[in-house]
Design a protein around this nucleic acid. Structure first.
Lengths: 196, 196
DNA sequence: TAAGAACATTGATCTATGTCACATTCCGGA
DNA sequence: TCCGGAATGTGACATAGATCAATGTTCTTA
């Protein structure tokens, strides 16, 4: 149940199995079914979520009712609304399972305890968040400079696995284009397209 | 010379003046003139930059030659190309002073030393990067969902006067619109506009 | 295993914003 | 204090992608 988390942590920092025992006492495990919500807009994000198995997405809905996906979270990834988690303000995000999944949850108080007992985890989370920031900055720059087609091609290269598991209209929503546009540009790529 | 840095750090974590002495030995100070570059595309980002005084911007240039501004960095802010800084790969970013400025620089090796000697700074940097991630995620979601005009109005609300004093074409470039579009929507706001 | 829901495709049309070209204003340095 | 380049403004036109509407396809679950 905790193997993946231990593996992920020790990829970034060194942590003995004895130290890791502390983690086991502070996380709780939960199974979630496809389409089940871990967080709904307006609620406070009570947990940081580690995905043990399955796939989640976090997204907002704008005034027009259009969904915008911030993140897909696969096995071994973390997700949460960090702002809401730390400030306890209501969240603007929804977090929903796209497949039957298994997650590890940690509450804010447990998380504080964890960092007190294992301060070396500050480094782990710093690295994690740092990589996330780098990726988000890149995505922002690309969203401002690339055409819809290039964004899609880069996404496919970057996340080949997600392509198989996520419906197209959600990929469109992640890329900031409509499902119709994505459908059309896929057709164009498939026919004459770019390669040949 | 180090007062602002000390103030900024102790806003987030507690650090005695004695401990802070270590910092003083690991940073170097530099004055930069307006239009001077701290980093140019293709070079490795050798420093993390703390802005003591003045204003910098970091930006990329796409294949069409269009500039896209990732960040304005005011007094008390950090900037760097984190990816390049940590991987030592050539950077895709330029970092340029928009005013005569004064910065504190820390190299990668010094930064590693700093964290070894003062591990409590892991927490400081974690919090810093976390806030940056939250802000970048919000900016990304807004760039996907808002009109040019709303993005501009939010920008004006969000940022202090000093940033609003940067040339308009740079604000346009930060918002991901052309200077012509910004010019026109400012006219529209000024005349009939939104308020009245 | 059938019916409804979710998902994908396609055509016609619309629109916000980009592009290009030129005029005007502003500002820093000799 | 004047010059030249940077910055801004504006009109005419182009276009990527959105929107609307209809149809076809594939899950899923009772």
């Amino acid at each position: 149940m905790f193997e993946l988390l231990y593996k992920k942590i020790t990829e970034k920092i060194s942590l003995s199995e004895e130290e890791f025992e502390v983690c086991k006492t502070l996380f709780t495990s939960r199974k979630v079914r496809k389409r089940q919500f871990m967080l709904q807009e307006g609620d406070v994000s009570r947990y940081q979520i580690f995905v043990n198995k399955g796939l989640l997405r976090s997204y907002t809905i704008d005034e027009k009712g259009t969904e915008h996906i911030l993140q897909f979270a696969l096995e071994g990834w973390w997700t949460a609304d960090l702002y809401s988690f730390f400030t306890e303000e209501p969240s603007l995000f929804n977090i929903e399972a796209l497949e039957d999944s298994e997650v590890l949850l940690i509450t804010r108080p447990s998380w504080e305890t964890l960092l007190e007992k294992l301060p070396v985890l500050e480094r782990y989370f710093r690295i994690l968040i740092q990589n996330s920031l780098i990726a988000t900055q890149r995505r922002l720059m690309e969203s401002l400079s690339e055409t819809a087609e290039k964004k899609y091609l880069k996404f496919m290269k970057m996340y080949p696995e997600s392509i198989q598991r996520v419906p197209q209209h959600m990929i469109a929503s992640y890329l900031g284009i409509t499902r119709e546009t994505l459908s059309r540009l896929r057709r164009d790529i498939a026919t004459g397209g770019s390669g040949a």
